[in-house]
Design a protein around this nucleic acid. Structure first.
Lengths: 237, 237
DNA sequence: CGACTGGTTGAGTGGTCTCAAGTCCTGTGG
DNA sequence: CCACAGGACTTGAGACCACTCAACCAGTCG
């Protein structure tokens, strides 16, 4: 099922963007020794909500969605994770089970660091602690923003926000616009926007009709981000 | 405006519930030396969204609401803080300005620890780092829940959730029920529930009519928390 | 006693959800 | 290569929840 590699953390291209960027050579070597590198295919689940955590997952390459499943069986995406980012250390820190399910969106390379090694390093590295604190602080702040959007903005505004957020995170320059390259279903875009599938589709169509975006299957091309931004603030432009 | 006391951290009754619970005597002494204790009156603002942080605030006694102000001027309460809890270290950690405004709900005693002292202690105390990490991890998890509620539950369900949450946090036993003692305006209950004032009032009235709660001004007495819980899950009981 | 803030209730509207039909894709097996 | 099945996507129609606007009441403070 998994292909276990042994690529070193030292050589990891994504490391300097992630939580392990500040480690000393010695710590990095320890990390490298205690981790396994796994290959995951699209749609595979890395861990399920409710599972007990045995370590930290760190994305070498790929994209993952983290979601909560509601009693009615709907998914609510809470976070998107990409290269360099770590997952699952929150559950470890609060010695709790995972509160989210992690599903791979595209074929990915994901490393696993054993719980013991992680704490070993954490207990002796104020820098790692500091990086983790900053990471969590940013996460809290980003969630604060989501809460405000969900509570005070219209669905139309939130869908526009989602497109801009995706463009910010996954957009790549192209002439006359920017292409969002992340294989999200319409349903995913809907839960990110805090709405249902049909409403998300409707507003995407509207934005397309108005020339702000183009839709090619799952690809979204942003043609006019200024006007989209105006939409998020309910301004006419 | 402020009355500056000099009560020691060692004698602080709220300390063992807060982020400074794991400090060594020496660290505690340093903390105590570098802090000031201030008295705030109801409605006073401790810091404003956008301000630069100069340190950490720690609640010795009292209740505070933290909110974001939207462009349209509406408040969105993000967190309620009470005795023992600290505020403002997120902004420090990400060397950013405050993202929230802190307003005192009832006369409070709030200590202020200078930035320098805070980092001094943090850099040498893995335990403090660990406690802060746990605190933030819990905050993230609680916000995840809020996001899911806001996106998937009805206003009716959310108002019931808010009442139960307040009861959990601020309820005190009484015969035949539990009294919530926190001076929140209806508007505050509304933003906590992610709705507008009128809707919150309407559902509170409904719950009252159905005998689940009683309303005496700002006091809410919970008479039947089981049925309220059923409401949050949209079950009939 | 006004003026003001906070709370409650009513009426009407409109945005969003639900349900449903139908089309477009993609992968699979013949 | 095509036929087909199943999932993903799109669009329409109708219903309803929740928001807005507005009037009114209760309590408080200068």
């Amino acid at each position: 099922m998994f292909h276990c590699g042994s690529k070193s953390c030292e050589s990891c291209e994504s490391r300097d963007q992630g939580v392990f960027k500040e480690l000393s050579p010695a710590e990095l070597a320890l990390l490298s020794r205690c981790k396994t590198s796994n290959h995951y295919k699209k749609k595979q689940v890395i861990f399920y909500e409710g599972n007990a955590p045995y370590g930290v997952h760190c994305v070498r390459k790929g994209k993952i969605k983290l979601f909560r499943t509601t009693p009615q069986g709907r998914e609510q995406i809470v976070r998107l994770v990409s290269s360099g980012e770590a997952m699952g250390f929150k559950a470890l820190l609060s010695s709790d089970n995972y509160s989210l399910t992690a599903e791979v969106l595209e074929d990915s390379e994901i490393c696993f660091v054993d719980k013991k090694a992680f704490f070993e390093i954490l207990d002796h590295s104020p820098k790692l602690a500091r990086t983790l604190l900053e990471t969590l602080a940013d996460e809290v702040k980003s969630q604060e923003k989501t809460i405000c959007s969900f509570s005070q903005k219209s669905v139309r505004e939130r869908v526009a926000e989602t497109v801009l957020m995706l463009n910010e995170k996954y957009g790549s320059r192209a002439e006359g616009g920017s292409t969002i390259t992340i294989p999200l279903k319409r349903e995913d875009i809907a839960t990110l926007s805090g709405t249902v599938l049909e409403s998300a589709v409707r507003y995407l169509s509207e934005f397309k009709k108005d020339g702000m975006i183009e839709l090619k299957g799952r690809e979204i091309i942003v043609r006019n981000s200024e006007r989209l931004l105006a939409v998020t603030q309910n301004k006419l432009l």
